[in-house]
Design a protein around this nucleic acid. Sequence first.
DNA 1: ATTTAATCGAGACGGTACGTCGAGTCTTTTT
DNA 2: AAAAAGACTCGACGTACCGTCTCGATTAAAT
Lengths: 194, 194, 194, 194
Amino acid sequence: MDKELYHGGRPRSEQARTAILNAVDDLLVEVGYAAMTMKSISERAGVSRQTVYRWWSHKAEILFEASAADAAEELAITITGNPLDDLTSYVEALVRFLAHSPAGAAYRALLGEAQHDLAVAELLSAKDPLGDSARFVIEQVIGKEVRSLRIEQATSLLIGPSFFWILSGRDPAGLVPRELAENFIYDLQARQLR
Amino acid sequence: MDKELYHGGRPRSEQARTAILNAVDDLLVEVGYAAMTMKSISERAGVSRQTVYRWWSHKAEILFEASAADAAEELAITITGNPLDDLTSYVEALVRFLAHSPAGAAYRALLGEAQHDLAVAELLSAKDPLGDSARFVIEQVIGKEVRSLRIEQATSLLIGPSFFWILSGRDPAGLVPRELAENFIYDLQARQLR
Amino acid sequence: MDKELYHGGRPRSEQARTAILNAVDDLLVEVGYAAMTMKSISERAGVSRQTVYRWWSHKAEILFEASAADAAEELAITITGNPLDDLTSYVEALVRFLAHSPAGAAYRALLGEAQHDLAVAELLSAKDPLGDSARFVIEQVIGKEVRSLRIEQATSLLIGPSFFWILSGRDPAGLVPRELAENFIYDLQARQLR
Amino acid sequence: MDKELYHGGRPRSEQARTAILNAVDDLLVEVGYAAMTMKSISERAGVSRQTVYRWWSHKAEILFEASAADAAEELAITITGNPLDDLTSYVEALVRFLAHSPAGAAYRALLGEAQHDLAVAELLSAKDPLGDSARFVIEQVIGKEVRSLRIEQATSLLIGPSFFWILSGRDPAGLVPRELAENFIYDLQARQLR
DNA sequence: ATTTAATCGAGACGGTACGTCGAGTCTTTTT
DNA sequence: AAAAAGACTCGACGTACCGTCTCGATTAAAT
């Protein structure tokens, strides 16, 4: 049985919940993260301010919940078995996500906020869409188990260059995913990780 | 002649200027970027609010001016001529800067802000301490001219992994600068950039 | 038969009703009228908020119901037949009620609210504990019927001075009930009301 | 010299001050005391909310300042020297003030609030328009010095009946000022206060 | 020496969002 | 029905920071 135990009272409004998540998605695109306030979110969602605060404590928390599923989906690739192809398409997905997707914009805003807000930093480290997706791809490509620190470092090697490129404001058109995938393979081979 | 033409009136107070820059440095360490307001800056500097606004328009601008010199200095290394050693000490300096230095904290805060504030993004792209320092080191190591896009990409290769590691909240102790330097050299060799 | 016709459904809980009235009494003493909210009343009574609203519309209404009986009792004196003694003990009871009794505090709060809330004003004019008690004492003392306007004026003469003294924040210790009773008798004699 | 010493900063806006006091006067008449909020005051005055809070802490404080001058003026009578006439015209003024004047409505609202708000009670006891005016009239009528407690009691005798009559919601038309003045004189004579 | 003009400290101003609180109402299940 | 529980809308609360403004006082170079 998937029903919660009844604890009395009016049940949470699913309609309000989705209206708020949608409002956040829309506002991020329309006015940007900085100009998106708790007030504007509640008004856009047609919901009282109190209802927003009842379930989330920051706009970062709402934005995270609103974009987490999209992020995971956009960073998932279908594995073909060819390492270079798979890594290339992952880097392509990564660049597309960070540079062009609304969910990626949300991620960048959150990661930016995390640099000076501990609560947001904890939010992101609890569930890290970039790290998770990269770890998955690398494990598939390597084909065997790897020590956890090693895979964390491999993750940074794979994601880092594109990540810095885009967050530092460089033009994403200058990135060449295939070359980045090749570099990653060189490094693996040199270290004989597999 | 580097003096402005005289337009009458009391000259700008150098004392006020340095008091403000120092106040920003102090407050960043003491209360963090988010809690640092224009009001608290002016009060800490013992200066009127208007005086701050007269010369800078955002706290980001002040912080940038206050930390730019420190950043450049902390990211400068002395070249020995040994590529692996030089790259290793650069990565060490980079990690020290990003993870442990007040100037690095300022840089991370500004880069975070740049993700959702165009004005800050332009500030950073006008003078990019990470890119500049990496470019310099790479040019010294390679020893000859390189096409500008190539060097930009090499920059991302060198900086990216540490950058992602730290900004995503991972423990800087897990980074191994020598390995990152080696990886960079593998990539260069594989591409025969020199 | 004084029972309502049965209309089906669960009957009103007498337990809830008295719990609410007691809660209001307690809260008035503990936190005062202003800080007493419908929420705090329901929580103190261990009753749902809706149950309070189902039977009363304002906290003033509850407080009035909770204190009316006490007020009437505290303002009732036993008649001895000696006019000066009876009037004196009435004024004493009046001062004790207004200045020191919880029911009197409730009355003052309600009368205060009545100055800017029409609903409360109507509540009080429907059943006026001060007027009623004074009218009774005066009728006993005079010993015969009197025109209704006359008795209303006599009421104000008897109650007014103490009432103003206490409501304007003066120290009740400064009041001398016997003198007030004497004054009232002077006035009656001068007008030869009896 | 009636100029304050200069303490730096932009001077207080007299325009804002009077706009706020006028707004309170208007709102009291239009919507009543209870519905008059700090927000509506600031909006009506065309002033920011902060400006209201900068100079007053409660709406009671503003209302008091806005009506104090009117109250004093409305309760001042010209002394003719004939005790009965003077006392009668004072009672008339008192009834007119309490029952029909906007300033009187303000006074009643404040006195009501004072019954459950200590801050308001202190406000009123600091400067009591009713007490002050009655004291003045009584001193003129008696024509000589009187012990301070005596005059306080005389004050309550003079004001009390009308005060109770009106605050308890009775029709002011039922009051007969001349009779009240006469009663007051009877009491004085009986006590031989003069 | 006086004038001119931009600076400085101080602090009031209009705005706007903050996060909280109380008001009534509504929607569940249980009695 | 009535009751308990608690989510909901609404709107005011008092505070904080924003960026602008208006004061008198200061400080130089130009007159």
